[in-house]
């Protein structure tokens, strides 16, 4: 069958499949009673309420793809990313991938009482690097994070920008096959931002595929070709970034007017 042949040809490039992902959270509904006793009772007896964070999202990623996930706060972007990174189980659906995608953003071990240098070693080991690889990648992390002068100080003395740089350096030390970028460059000065963007571009060239998660249309436009727009966990539009973004911006505009 010729048709199946071409299908197999194309499917060789498939690197990740997200299949009908639905994510729900069960929370206790907190009702505010008048007396402390009423509040305690409602805490204990409270009805469980289901929050639909993500409803039925599917997509396929191929080698060389750059996919954007866009949507306003609370649209379910971060929940999807956590499921893709294997950190959370979806309520329904499944994720298939060549290797577990690496998440870039808030991740990275930090023990505030330890020096930046010790945190780098611990963080790299946690990512699965061998001690030899840690020694090999260590100078690169210091270079990317730009923390040369304060690397032996405890991390608790760092500014939030410095902490972000440290985590960025650790997370990007080794080039992953599938990279999830969850609004990583939100913190840091312009000098660091330039260095970080250069490193990201380098990773994107080498990585199999990149998923960019952001609420900012400009970032998605710069970095992706296709994108999915989520609102309250539901896919509002999916397709070429150039087609989807105007709809998102129009939605934001009308939402602001209201």
């Amino acid at each position: 069958m010729a048709e199946q042949g071409t299908g197999a040809q194309a499917s060789d490039d498939v690197i990740l499949i997200a299949d009908h992902i639905t994510i729900e959270y069960e929370v206790l509904a907190q009702r505010h009673g008048k007396s402390p006793l009423q509040r305690v009772v409602s805490q204990v007896m409270g009805r469980k309420q289901i929050i639909h964070a993500v409803s039925d999202v599917s997509f396929t990623l191929r080698r060389g793809d750059a996919l954007g996930l866009i949507g306003s706060n609370g649209s379910g972007k971060s929940s999807i990313v956590r499921v893709l990174a294997g950190l959370q189980r979806p309520t329904r659906g499944s994720v298939w991938a060549t290797s577990t995608p690496a998440m870039l953003g808030v991740s990275g071990v930090t023990m505030p009482d330890l020096s930046g240098s010790r945190n780098i070693r611990l963080g790299l080991l946690a990512l699965g690097l061998s001690p030899e690889e840690v020694t090999e990648f260590y100078p690169k992390v210091i270079e990317v994070s730009g923390l040369k002068d304060s690397i032996h100080l405890p991390v608790r003395t760092y500014s939030s920008g410095m902490k972000a740089r440290l985590k960025f350096g650790i997370a990007t030390a080794r080039t992953p096959e599938i990279l999830l970028v969850d609004e990583a460059l939100g913190v840091g000065d312009s000098k660091f931002r330039a260095a970080a963007e250069a490193r990201l571009a380098e990773i994107q060239r080498a990585a199999g595929a990149v998923i960019q998660v952001n609420h900012n249309a400009a970032t998605i436009e710069e970095t992706t070709k296709t994108c999915i727009w989520l609102e309250r966990g539901v896919v509002r539009a999916a397709g070429r970034t150039a087609d989807v973004l105007p709809m998102y911006e129009e939605y934001l505009g009308t939402a602001r007017k209201r």
Binding site: A8, S11, D12, V14, I15, L16, I17, D19, H20, S58, F59, T60, V83, L84, A85, G86, R89, P90, G93, S94, V95, W96, A97, T98, T100, P101, T226, A238, G239, R240
Partner: peptide, 25 residues
């Protein structure tokens, strides 16, 4: 952007291309 696959198609495609489940231990 591909048309969404059914669960069976996705599983078959994943098996054919040697992908493994991320969301399961």
């Amino acid at each position: 952007m591909d048309t969404p696959l059914t669960t069976e198609e996705a599983a078959a495609l994943a098996r054919r291309t040697g992908l493994h489940r991320v969301d399961k231990a």
